[in-house]
Structures are given as C-alpha cells and as structure tokens.
Nucleic acid binder design. Sequence first.
DNA 1: CACTTCAGTTGTACTATACAACCAAATGGG
DNA 2: CCCATTTGGTTGTATAGTACAACTGAAGTG
Lengths: 144, 144
Amino acid sequence: MSHRAEHLDTIQRELTAFARRARAAAARLHPELSLVSYTLLAHLQDQRGCRATDLAAHYLLDKSTVSRQVAGLERLGLVERRADPDDQRVQVLHLTDRGTEVLDQVAASRRTAFENRLAEWDETDLARFAGYLLRYNASGAEQD
Amino acid sequence: MSHRAEHLDTIQRELTAFARRARAAAARLHPELSLVSYTLLAHLQDQRGCRATDLAAHYLLDKSTVSRQVAGLERLGLVERRADPDDQRVQVLHLTDRGTEVLDQVAASRRTAFENRLAEWDETDLARFAGYLLRYNASGAEQD
DNA sequence: CACTTCAGTTGTACTATACAACCAAATGGG
DNA sequence: CCCATTTGGTTGTATAGTACAACTGAAGTG
C-alpha cells in the first residue's frame, strides 16, 4: 500500500474510533446535557436565536427530531420560544438565562477536558490540528 | 483569548461537529452495516477472532450491548461463534466468509469516500493529520 | 465443597432518530 | 379574491443503540 493509502486508512480508522466513543463520553461527562442538546444550545447562543427549521437544516436532522429536542430543552427551562411578529407559524428560539448559564458551565468543563487531554501539545501542533479539522469538516459537510 | 485557547476551542467544536454527524452519515452510506457493526467486524478481522467480552472492553460498551450486536451479526450470517475448548463459558467470535466479504466491500467504499474527500490534500498534510488523530485518540482513550 | 468471579443472555427502560400524517399559517397564480 | 401549494411545526409510530440489573452456567479458589 502506498504511504498515501496508509494515511487515509489511519484517518478513517481514527475518526471512526473517535465518533464511536464521543457520544457516550460526552454523556458520561455531562449526563444532564447530551452532545446533541449541547450543540443545539451552542448554536442558539452563536446565532442569538433561530428557528427550529434552521437547526434542522444546519445539523441535517429531521424537523421532528429537532421539535422533540427543543421540547426537552424547554421543559428543562434552557430554551424559550418567542413569536415572530412577521410570521405566525414561526417560533424563534432563544436561550434563557438558565440556558446560558448551563451552556457556559458545560462548555467550560468540556474546555477543561480538552485542555487536559491536549496539555502536552505545543501551540504549533494545536494550530495545525485545528486547521486540519476545519478543512476536513468544511470539505463535504453534506457527506459526513 | 490566547491563540492556544482559540485552537482548543476550534478542536473541540470541530470534533464535536464531526461526532454528531458521523453515525448518520455512515448509516446513509451503508444502511446494511451501522458504524458500530462495522467497527466490531473490523476488530474481529484484525484480531482474527476474539471474545464478546474483549469487544466490550475495547469499545467501552456494556456486555449486553455487545451480546445483542453480535446476535444481530450472527443473524445476518456475518459472524459465527466457536466454542473455546479450554473454557466452556467462552464463545470465540469469527467472521464468516460472507462477513469478510461484506466487511471488505464496505471498507472499500468507505475508503473511496475518504479518498474523494481528501483528494486535494497533499501527502504531508495527510501524514500530519493522521499523526494528530492517532496522538489524540491515544491520549485519553478512557475519556473520549 | 461452598463462595466468588467470569462470560454471556435476557428483561426493561430510555434516548436519538427517521418517516409519514397531520395542522395551521403564508403565499401566489388564475 | 380564492384555492392550491409551500412552509413551520407537532404528533404517531417504529427502529437502533445503549445501559443497568437480574439471571444462568461454568471456572477458579479458599
């Protein structure tokens, strides 16, 4: 096998291994906020509110899935729905204060976990690794 | 925020985004073999057979989960159980010919997907990216 | 030989997810 | 202006993956 093919295989294998473990690991670290909930909240914070449909489109989830996730987050008091004056069908989703608080806390603890894990890496390697991940994800967002 | 912290945030965000999408993407590509089944089969091929308990330990899965996954793979005719002459409790799992065939086929198609996605990358970047992923996964396998 | 450990299965429950059917609001062409 | 279509969202139903706990049977150990 060529070097190139070996690298491709390694990348495939290691990304797969990571994907397999990530959800469970996130759940162990934060039983109160699944990986999906976390990303939805983070997106709401980022966008300063958006519609359920936007979340579904962005994360390639079915609208029913988003509907139920949002319902759960609302039940937990982390998200609130506001009417859109221009379109009565639309609910604009926003983080509540509590939602912001929980999200910040979970984000901080995740950040700490990453910091520990990557403590030995020098800045050059971190920068390159971050760059590669961005590049990888930006290439076929539609595929995986 | 320091550069270092920014890189850490990017890595966190991009790995999270990847993890969120990977399962669904794998399922779309191969409805007949989920990401989990695929990794279990690959492990069996790699190890030339092993016990259910080994799979559970290696992938941090509950033994009941593995038991059901294996049952499914056996039902599909991809895996067979052999008695361990030295220990009547143990079932040594092996790929069947059909299992090898299906695994090779799926692996090839996954490889093609990765090749397409990474077609523009030069070999140096591939090698570095592969190295970083290995290093990342090798640091806290127990965490995530 | 009795107690404990180990491999694996089964019962039960929960989460994430999809697809399809549905409802209500908005929009656009006759 | 009205009805057909589109759009945003919910609900019913089904499936997969997972965990935990209770259990069975075999192996090891005092």
